[in-house]
């Protein structure tokens, strides 16, 4: 339970970098897709799982590298934190994909 809560805390910390970057990417996605919501979702999702995620990890490493010891001391490795964060992003993207399907079908 403690490990789950710590992983969630790490995820939120990295999302502080990833979300703004991916939102900007989402806004630019509007330009390239006539269905602007779908374009935004595609660009946002792609960035969330690729460049935004990598950049978030890099920025976290630059600004909060010492904080990894907070998690290490509770038995969490850096790799496990990163994999879990990526997994949560995948879940988020799947939800957005379902939203996209809904929009295609009903809107």
């Amino acid at each position: 339970m403690v490990k789950l809560r710590l992983t969630w805390h790490y995820y939120k910390s990295t999302q502080r970098f990833n979300l703004p970057i991916s939102l900007i990417a989402g806004l630019t996605g509007i330009i390239f897709n006539p269905h602007f919501v779908v374009g935004a979702i595609d660009a946002f999702s792609l960035c969330l799982l690729t460049g935004g995620f990598l950049l978030a990890l890099y920025l976290y490493e630059q600004r909060h590298a010492g904080q990894y010891y907070f998690y290490y001391n509770r038995g969490l490795s850096k790799v496990s934190l990163m994999v879990a964060s990526y997994g949560l992003n995948v879940v988020l993207v799947i939800l957005l994909f379902l939203l996209k399907l809904f929009l295609y079908r009903y809107v």
Binding site: G66, Q67, N73
Partner: peptide, 20 residues
């Protein structure tokens, strides 16, 4: 460090989260 209850490490620099 990945095993429970073996050892902990106090790094030179602070390790506490700054956002809470």
């Amino acid at each position: 460090y990945q095993q429970p209850d073996l050892l902990t490490y106090l790094p030179q620099q602070g390790f506490l989260p700054k956002d809470i």
